[in-house]
Design a protein around this nucleic acid. Structure first.
Lengths: 182, 182
DNA sequence: GTCTATACAGTGATAGAC
DNA sequence: GTCTATCACTGTATAGAC
């Protein structure tokens, strides 16, 4: 039924997103992936830590392809609105959590420090580079990029806390407007 | 050595902040509070859930006293910079995490949904009210308040992820400037 | 009030049959 | 590859001595 490791990554990611690293028990993972522990350890000999690392790598690859690269290479007047649209879809209007951000807030951050840091650094860098190519000065571009990336994470926290997708919508609209102005 | 429940709340809060709800084991809590399980269950008959609820209540009370009330009652030209300063100190320049925000991102949110929602709602409301008294129109005040509260949460995520207090400093400066303008 | 001892379900992980 | 059985261990929680 499951041919390769990549086939279980989406379900795996969802479990980590919903329950966090500690909360994602192997029993739960087994249920949601439809795989027994034997199969799971066949695909991930390193156990839960390797599962989480694989999920983080896949997330990074997805963002690299759909968000970071377009920001670096395409016309920023198109890439920025496209980023907003992609983020909106990916995080399901704020009802889905950013796994990398959630990991950053607890002690598992130390275990995956490099992956977490590089994800946010790549995002900020790509966005800043796009804004700069769009005509902004370097410092202004970096400042806006850092603000926007943080604002997205904050919007996710707030939308989850208030259980209000509307607040996520409003936040994304603000972010887009601010990135595109000037 | 420990006279009342409130005496262990600070240590308790720190354990939850560092390890999250699932990661905060009773063994760890026992170490950090210096109390045995017997004592812990004497103070918190409801176990870990009651501990977390007590911590959330204490956090809410702290913010109510030091941030929400000043925003509602004092001159916003003074209360807003004071909020920035208080937030900066409370979160240790972004090296300390917001427990309420961290809880909001995982499934324990559902267990403490009311406390989490009311914390962020109270913050946003108090800030919006202050801005309005400062002369902003109602919709503009609410919009800026929501943005600022989310931005603080985002700044905490980013500062932890990048392990860079500098990004938190910059974010707080931006937030203050934006709240005080106009 | 604080401790130790303990119950017992659940944890991550391994071994081996198929 | 996938399963079941099982491991040693840790989890929360309780009981009872002091």
């Amino acid at each position: 039924m499951v041919a390769e490791r990549a086939d279980v990554l989406p379900a795996l990611a969802e479990v980590f997103r919903e329950h966090g690293y500690e909360g994602a028990s192997l029993a739960l993972i087994g249920q949601r992936t439809g795989l027994g522990k034997g199969s799971l350890y066949h695909f991930f000999p390193g156990g839960k830590e390797e599962m989480a690392a694989a999920v983080l790598a896949e997330i990074d690859a997805w963002f690299e392809q759909h968000i970071f690269r377009p920001l670096r290479e395409e016309d920023p007047r198109r890439a920025v609105p496209e980023m907003i649209r992609a983020v909106h879809g990916y995080f399901r209007s704020g009802q889905r959590v950013c796994l990398v951000g959630a990991f950053a807030l607890v002690d598992v951050r130390d275990r995956f420090a490099d992956a977490i840091r590089s994800y946010f650094a790549a995002w900020t860098d790509a966005l800043a580079q796009g804004l700069e190519r769009g005509g902004l000065a370097e410092v202004e571009a970096r400042d806006r990029a850092e603000e926007a990336v943080a604002a997205i994470q904050g919007a996710l926290v707030l939308a989850r806390a208030l259980d209000d997708p509307g607040s996520f919508h409003r936040a994304m609209a603000r972010i887009e407007a601010r990135l595109m102005s000037g």
